[in-house]
């Protein structure tokens, strides 16, 4: 029985999905703060949100890089 593979798939799924969702959600949150009417917050909030979105994109691309056999040869 391939229990190890099963655990591996479940774990990989959880880790990758949570990474992407957390980064993107942080980005959304920071964008929301940056867009608030009372702009009493420091100016680095909006750039930071872009950093979050960027990291999220990178995480996805890294995942694809791992999977596509063309790159791993």
């Amino acid at each position: 029985m391939k229990w190890l593979e099963l655990v591996l798939v479940a774990g990989a799924t959880l880790v990758s999905a949570v990474t992407v969702v957390v980064l993107y959600a942080l980005g959304v949150r920071l964008t929301a703060i940056a867009g608030d009417f009372r702009s009493s917050q420091p100016g680095w909030i909006r750039p930071l949100s872009y950093v979050c979105f960027g990291l999220c994109g990178l995480a996805v691309l890294f995942g694809l890089y791992l999977i596509i056999p063309y790159f791993s040869k």
């Binding site: 798939v9 799924t13 992407v20």
Partner: peptide, 17 residues
């Protein structure tokens, strides 16, 4: 995100879902 992660992980790790 969960769907994509699960499909890609499983088809790559040989436990086809």
């Amino acid at each position: 995100t969960s769907t994509a992660a699960a499909i890609l992980a499983s088809s790559h790790l040989g436990f086809a879902l």
